[in-house]
Design a protein around this nucleic acid. Structure first.
Length: 1075
RNA sequence: GGGCUCAUAGCUCAGCUGGUAGAGCGCGUCGCUGAUAACGACGAGGUCACAGGUUCGAGUCCUGUUGGGCCCA
């Protein structure tokens, strides 16, 4: 069958869609699985993608790696699971569903119905799982899409139950109280994991408050806070014992303030905002000044204030009653001189550190807020009001009661809910935890795996060493139903390990639950009997699970640990996982390791590879909210996914990657276009010539050196491909592949072009065709895992369309194996040398301003090595053609034409001369190069004298190089010299002119729209004697090159193609017409 | 405040175990010309963030500083 005509200007995105259709029609993926069925297994474990929104381009990075390595191992004949995962449960989905309904609070959801709400969450997860599936297919990601796992599945949820039960059996599950960041809108605690994402710099009303000391009437502590609402729950005030405090008199009152704090210039602690654009902060000293005259009357140590008692700012509120007897000054090392007044207000129910302190010192803990952030009824005028709306009222109240000393807007970094953007507060709550005193075991598991990059392990261990207990509860609706049943009568709790167990334990509610997924609200209907007190109404706690639990279990749940242990053993541990580095050390990597360690005592993966973040053009992180995130579909249509995949594959994995039009275009130009060009060149010629890969095959003996060379380089590349794919370093292969394309295009094809043009099938033409065909089809196979679309297209044309029994897809082929017998290092070096020499000679031409079109008489090469000498001998015609010279001469020396310079080889000079190296180098540079070289040639050493010591140097110590002038243009590189005869004879001159004329005629042919094979009548008209002579002398040459049946010097009748040109200031009119 | 990581040409990045700094893009000049909206050559452009140290010799090793990124507190 004929080769297709290939358009060099192809629309890659459209073509990719065609290929997708082809894969679909031919069930290409299913066939691949069939091919590898029963073969040795290679196990990849997918980290689930959050099924909550369409993919952005940043999702495509990891997915490209996943696909590339799976494709490689498929080509290596490994059976795989190809299971994609979707992360479905959690607050982020709830937030989107809430937004659709316009819900503001949890109460809205309860009113709407938890069941309906949860069903809609499920629907949303399914909906976006479907969207992401389609997008992933568009990316060319070959997965068993009908078999994706969903973390919301019953199987997955019950698997986590089993894990939690096992933890409980070891006594690791506990209910703890803690003060934690809390989002009043979402009415849920925010884990440390989620906190970092929500910091923003905002102003708060900060206040300076007087705490009157009971023992010292008229004297006050001056305290400062940025969260006035927490004053309602004040219990104590902290000072640092070793700090100095000043006692300031103003009017009749005295105030204690840290001395340094008193004097310090203060500024807003902001990073992103420009401090110069914010309202200036006054020093505390200046604040005093504003209030009138003042005087520092004393200095005291902090320890002298400890144990004094004081009146709290809101002692009149019922809710604060418990604190009244407790108000006293305590010592605390965390008090600083750099912030605040040096006296810190302590509210254990409203701050994490305060809470720790209260546990140590036995202070009361006052928790003033409900879940929704409103004040409890016992807080007087604050009751029922939202915490974020009371600052002004509190200030007014404090002012009225003369407790306020000063207030100011204060900008600082403050945590916000990472989803809804509301400000967080700190709130005392009950949560459920897994005790993590078994972290050493997890660390052992982590060490079993290979981490890429290698510092990943240290990073993970660091997290494991320092992490706190794992808070697994969340007071929300959509998520894993924590299988904890807690007895309200006696406080006993139990963890249920699965569906069967729950059924056995149920004393009521089973009918209502039966047939539903183990989610709220259905599972909450089930009551069990308390094993301790016998109460029959024991309910599940209302909390749902931390979403990282959901993804943590997948090395077990998705691979059949609970359902088919034999199958599981074949696939566990995974050979490979790959995810984004950012965040996963404490999220998925951690959770995966922890669960696997608990359940089976080892790491669930053998190799973990991490990659960086995708940034925008300017290096800024992509965020949907910033508007700089790039939609996957748009990018795929715009640039094509092969380009995107190449960009991702070549990037240094552990660094952040910049994504933008410029970088995409670069990726396109560096490989996609050159590769397509070479392919198009071949295919279009093969089509015209009716090339048949079998019929016109050339034997190895018939191949030219150039053919053998490119085949040798190809097999070297195959070697690299195996190393880098199997070592999970595809970027290294891509770099080599790119280099290969470059030499293939700029040397092999360029040098071989004419071999393809002749008529018939002489041996050399067959050799050229056969070789290029082999190279194209093999290389195509090597890069197919990276750019699966264009390689498929090429394969269909070059192989499947030509060879009867060929596999139907390029992705069904086994990976190429390097044939070591075809690798000829010396030949590879030889061609590399000739490329280098030609380049050197070009630079000589360039310096003399002798363009390549102008033929020259002679090229002299003084080879710098045996390789170069052989290269000149073997590839003489390349030198003649590439450089347009009449002959190439090898010489042993051009000494008679050159001057010498001597340079030191520091690698040997250094050890030899030690601290005198610099002097030696200077001395060596002064040597007479020619004399040195002659001495070495005779086998004699050369001496230099440093500080009176005469030291021999030998040939290894120096590099001798040359330079020159006059009739020759030369260039040198190390020992290598090339020289070009710059003298132009009239003959050469005429030939140069003739070539100029030919070139212009060819241009005109093209402009006139003539076919390559069209014959023409040609008219060349000029007044110039020079041009006339050249035309006359080279008329045959001109006729042959331009396919002219005749050359005349008069105008044609009619409407011929015509142009007027200038060659070396002489004018020429060209006319031509089809013969 | 602590850990990890990065800092090399205008831009994006290579530089393995220390031995006189490289590529691609961009820019400039020139060239090639039926692979042609492609391609090649040449050129300009760098105190390798800064400061110390080790060494005959540091982009490379060590310490510190500054500034990015990620994470922890």
């Amino acid at each position: 069958m004929a080769f297709e005509k290939v358009d060099p200007k192809v629309d890659f995105a459209t073509q990719e869609r065609e290929v997708l259709g082809f894969w679909e029609r031919t069930k290409a993926f299913e066939k691949l699985r069939e091919i590898n069925k029963g073969k040795p297994k290679w196990s990849f474990l997918d980290g689930p993608i959050t099924a909550n929104n369409p993919m952005g381009v940043h999702h495509a990075w990891g997915r490209t790696y996943k696909d590339i390595y799976q494709r490689y191992h498929a080509a290596m004949g490994r059976e795989q699971r190809y299971q994609n995962g979707f992360d479905c449960q959690g607050l982020w989905i709830e937030v989107e569903v809430e937004r659709e309904h316009g819900f503001k609070t949890k109460k809205d959801i309860e009113k709407y119905g938890i069941d309906r709400f949860v069903e809609e969450c499920k629907d949303r997860a399914r909906q976006y799982a479907a969207v992401q599936t389609e997008q992933s297919k568009r990316l060319g990601y070959w997965m068993d899409w009908d078999n994706s796992y969903y973390t919301m599945s019953d199987e997955n949820n019950y698997a986590i139950w089993a894990f939690l039960k096992k933890c409980h059996e070891k006594g690791l599950i506990y209910k703890g109280a803690d003060v934690m960041p809390w989002c009043p809108r979402c009415a849920t605690g925010i884990s440390q994991m989620e906190m970092n994402e929500g910091y923003r710099e905002v102003p708060h009303t900060s206040v300076f408050i007087k705490f009157p000391l009971r023992e010292r009437p008229g004297e006050n502590l001056l305290v400062w806070t940025t969260t006035p609402w927490t004053l309602s729950s004040n219990v104590a005030a902290a000072v640092r014992e070793d700090m100095t405090y000043v006692k300031v008199k103003q009017g009749d009152a005295y105030y204690y303030v840290g001395k340094a704090n008193f004097e310090n210039l203060r500024r807003h602690p902001v990073q992103d905002l420009d401090p110069s654009k914010l309202p200036a902060l006054l020093s505390i000293q200046a604040l005093f000044k504003n209030n009138g005259p003042f005087e520092v009357v004393d200095e005291v140590e902090g320890r002298s204030l400890v144990d004094l008692t004081f009146d709290g700012p809101f002692d009149m509120l019922d809710g604060a009653a418990e604190a009244i007897p407790a108000h006293r000054v305590i010592a605390w090392d965390e008090v600083t001189e750099s912030e605040g007044t040096g006296i810190v207000h302590i509210a254990p129910g409203c701050g994490a550190e305060d809470y720790q302190l209260s546990k140590e010192l036995g202070l009361p803990q006052i928790a003033p807020l409900f879940e929704d952030g409103s004040f409890r009824p016992e807080f007087g005028f604050l009751s029922g009001k939202r915490v974020d709306q009371v600052a002004d009222e509190i200030v007014a109240d404090l002012t009225k009661r003369d407790v306020l000393f000063a207030k100011e807007p204060y900008y600082h970094r403050y945590p916000h809910c990472w989803r809804c953007r509301d400000e967080l507060v700190y709130r005392l709550v009950d949560e459920w935890f897994i005790h993590m005193n078994w972290r050493d075991q997890i660390m052992e598991s982590a060490k079993q795996a290979r981490w890429i990059p290698s510092w990943g392990l240290e990073r993970e261990l660091d997290w494991l060493r320092h992490m706190g207990d794992w808070m697994v509860s969340k007071k929300r609706f959509w998520g894993l139903a924590l299988p904890i049943w807690e007895c309200h009568e006696c406080g006993h709790f139990e963890v249920i390990g699965g569906w069967e167990e729950l059924k056995a334990r149920a004393v009521s509610g089973w009918e209502a639950f039966k047939g539903h997924t183990p989610h709220r609200p259905w599972v909450d209907a089930v009551k069990i009997r308390c094993a301790q007190c016998g109460d029959e109404g024991v309910s599940r706690i209302k909390d749902v699970g931390n979403p990282w639990l959901d993804a943590s279990i997948v090395s077990l749940s998705t691979m059949g640990y609970f359902s088919d242990r034999e199958y599981w053993e074949q696939w566990f541990p995974a050979d490979f996982v790959v995810e984004s580095l950012a965040g996963q050390f404490r999220n998925w990597f951690y959770a995966l390791l922890a669960v696997s360690t608990m359940m089976v005592g080892r790491s669930p993966f053998k190799v973990l590879k991490g990659h960086g973040l995708v940034m925008d053009d300017e290096g800024k992180p992509m965020h949907k909210s910033e508007g700089n995130a790039v939609d996957f579909d748009d990018a795929a249509d715009e640039i094509g996914v092969d380009v995107m995949r190449w960009l991702y594959a070549t990037a240094a994995p552990e660094r952040n990657l910049l994504f933008g039009p410029k970088h995409c275009d670069e990726a396109r130009r560096e490989i996609i276009l050159p590769w397509w060009n070479v392919y198009a060149f071949f295919s279009n010629l093969a089509r015209v010539d009716d090339f048949d890969p079998r019929e016109h095959a050339a034997t190895w003996q018939e191949r030219s050196l150039l053919d053998r060379w490119i085949v040798s380089d190809l097999h070297k590349l195959i070697r690299v491909a195996h190393e880098s794919y199997s070592g999970f370093d595809v970027a290294r292969f891509c770099a080599e592949a790119r280099r290969f394309i470059e030499v293939l295009s700029t040397w092999y094809v360029r040098r071989s072009r004419r071999r393809f043009y002749g008529q018939g099938w002489p041996a050399d033409k067959r050799a050229a065709y056969t070789t290029l065909y082999e190279v194209l089809t093999t290389f195509n196979r090597l890069i197919a895992p990276v750019v699966p679309f264009m390689t498929e297209k090429i394969y269909q044309n070059l192989v499947a369309g030509q060879i009867e029994d060929a596999p139907s897809s390029v992705h069904h082929l086994p990976f190429a194996e390097a044939d070591e017998s075809l690798i000829d290092e010396s030949l590879s070096e030889g061609v590399a040398a000739s490329i280098r020499l030609v380049s050197l000679a070009r630079s000589a031409r360039k310096e003399s301003r002798l363009k390549v079109r102008q033929p020259l008489a002679e090229l002299i090469v003084v080879p710098g090595s045996e390789t170069e000498r052989k290269a000149v001998e073997l590839f003489q015609d390349h030198f003649l053609e590439e450089l347009n010279v009449k002959k190439v001469t090898l010489r042993d020396s051009a000494d008679d034409m050159v001057t010498f310079t001597v340079e030191s080889n520091m690698k040997t000079i250094g050890p030899k001369f030690g601290r005198n190296t610099a002097a030696a180098r200077e001395a060596i540079s002064q040597l007479d190069g020619r004399a040195v070289e002659e001495a070495f040639a005779r086998g004699e050493p050369v001496f230099i004298t440093i500080e009176g010591n005469r030291t021999p140097i030998d040939p290894n110590d120096v590099t001798i190089s040359r330079s020159y002038g006059d009739d020759w243009a030369g260039a040198a590189d190390g020992k290598t010299v090339v020289m070009i005869d710059r003298r132009l004879t009239p003959e050469l001159k005429n030939e140069g002119l003739a070539r100029d004329i030919v070139r212009n005629v060819q241009n005109l042919r093209k402009e006139a729209g003539l076919d390559i094979a069209d014959r023409i009548r040609l008219s060349l008209m000029t007044e110039s004697e020079k041009l006339k002579a050249a035309i006359d002398k080279f008329s045959e040459y001109i006729r042959n090159e331009t396919l002219a049946v005749e050359i005349v010097a008069r105008p044609f009748a009619g409407d011929p193609a015509r142009t007027d040109i200038k060659i070396e200031a002489e004018t020429l009119r060209i006319e031509l017409a089809k013969a």
